[in-house]
Every structure is written in structure tokens, then in C-alpha cells.
Amino acid sequence: METFYVTCGNWNEFLLAKAEEGEIFLSLPQQDHFEYFPLSENFLEKACFGVVRPAEPLKFFFFPFSQRILPSQNPSSFRILVGAAACDLEGLKVFDHVFSEGEYSDPDYLLRRNSALLISSDCSSPNRFCFCTAVGGKPYPTNGFDMNLSAIDEGYIVEIGTDRGRRFLGKDSRFLPSSPEMLAEREKKRARATLYVTENSQTFHIEDKIPLEKRISFTAKEWQSLWSYCVQCGSCTFSCPTCVCFLLEDYSGEKFVKVRTWDSCLLPGYAAMASGVSPRPLLTDRFKNRFMCKYSYMPQNFGHSGCTGCGRCIEGCAGKIDKRKVLQSVLTETLLDVRYES
């Protein structure tokens, strides 16, 4: 694919000028994480793309926590999202499967998806929770982006992924042809990041075993030892780039007004029917269901993993449950202490 080189300063100037074309959100460094903020000149000063995934998955932009879906809302403005990681692009593919493929598509999602430009970036410093390589991913995007940024020296290699990305860049003399040396430098950095995630994940012995092909032999008691620190806060589901579950509520009034809100399969009322009966009344059932959804059901449903290895569910877990250890326990049929050190 076509690649260019641009200095950090020129890239920031380019982005500032692009603010006329739409709302720009940037993944910016905070104390110990990255987070999306609307573009402002002050923020750009501390921008450094291509370090690690932001705290929020892309669904925050395409599938808001709560939104009116009937009647449909007005089109959202054009958005330019800068700094999503490879795992986030993979997560978005699950949303595309759900909302834009199959018999029924979701007009609100399509509208948001079509009016957004994705400028992703490599992860040069994956964190200790990342395990993308164990679920078939890489710490740098290879597809699914309009443009991608790889940080090298004092600038970025900009890779064009789509015609839309090409048009967005336009003819801009600040973007120089990338040299073989620059591309070699990118490969070196990518290899280093891949090695880090791979070595980090290898300690859990979970590669090549996902998606799950066989039924899990654990009894309820064995599952209980895995979920015993779960406080059912739903953080793992809400921060997950592929968790798509939602509920619908009707607003009072004469007209048909419907609001869609995120739901979490770990919460007790999730599957409860009007009679109060739930097919998964126990946390054992719900914990196992979430696990199976990621590693067995979603692969069966869409041919795509329900886990991108982003590690947000681990990092945000109130009970400090390391899902990699849960996976390891299940896959090796060995009960382990699944908590991690803060």
C-alpha cells in the first residue's frame, strides 16, 4: 500500500487544517493511559500517536452508551478519529458483522460508520495487559483503516488504506515519499512490539487454541473458582471492543419512541423473562456464557473472534481477574489463581 513520511509538526498542522472538514478526536496521553479528546491546538502539543491503544474502544463513537433509535436521529457530523489501534479495528469488524451484514442492517450505525474516517496507529509500546498476538492479531494494523500512522524518529509513516484516506490526504507537499530505510525502521519497531506481546502472552499458553473447538469440561464448582472475584460490575463488557449487547426501552408518550442502551450479559437481569425466570440465574452460568460468547459463539456466528486481545477487560476488572489466566485454566483444564497483581 502507498506510504508517505511526514514530520510530527507537519502532521499536527495538517490535522489542524482538517478541522474544517469535520470533528476530530485524538487519542492523547494521560497520566497512565491514552484517551480520546476533541482536537484543540493545546492538545496537539502533547500528541504522540502510535504508542498504545486508547482506554476507549471505537464502539464509543459508533454505538453510543444510550441513544434514540426510533425515530432515527439526524445524521451525526463527519468525524475523524485518530489513534485507534489494530485491536480496535478488529473489534469494529464484529460491529460491522452485526449491524451492517445479514438480513437487517442498523441505519444509525451505518450513518455513523459511513461518516467517520479512521486514522489508526501502530502500538510501539503495548502494555502488560495486551495479548493480541495470542488471538491471531498484531500490534499494528494491516487493514480496516483509512490511514495508519507508524511513529518513526521525529515523524510518522502514513499508510493509505482506502480511497477515502487518499482523498483526505489530497496533494500535500508536507507528505514526502517514504524511503526504504524508513520502512525498514517501521518493520523493526513493529517486530519489537510483536515480540513483546508474544513473549508476554506465551506465559499463558493460550496461542493456537482459540477459537474453542471443544466443549469445556469444567464443572460449576470449577468455574466458581474462576469467577469468585467477579463483582458483576460489567466493566469488562462495557470496555470490550466487541461487546455489542443492548436493551431497548420505549419512552412514554403516544408515539413510538425507542432508546437503545448498552447491556451486560454478566448482570443478573440480562436474560430474565417477564416471569422472572432466567436461563442463566447463577453467576457461573453468566461468566461462562460471556467466555463462550467471545471464544466460541462469535466465531461461529461471524467467523470472527469475539476477543481482540486488547486487555481492557483485564485492566478494568474490579476483581483483578486476568482473563488470560482464565483462558489458560480452561484450555489446560487446570485450576489456577486467576488474579493479577496491581
Binding site: 452485526v98 449491524f99 438480513e103 455489542v244 443492548f246 423473562m273 463462550m292 460468547c293 459463539y297
Partner: peptide, 23 residues
């Protein structure tokens, strides 16, 4: 019979294992 919201295979509430009751 399962809890159902969307009815169109999106919300995942009605699943029995990998199967959508609504689809």
C-alpha cells in the same frame, strides 16, 4: 422462549448457546 429485545439478531439477549432464538 427467551428474553428478546431487537428480534433481528443484533442484541444477543435471546441466545441459546451459539443460536439466536430470534433468527
Amino acid at each position: 422462549e427467551r428474553k428478546m429485545y431487537c428480534g433481528i439478531g443484533h442484541c444477543r439477549h435471546c441466545m441459546v448457546g451459539p443460536y439466536f432464538v430470534c433468527k
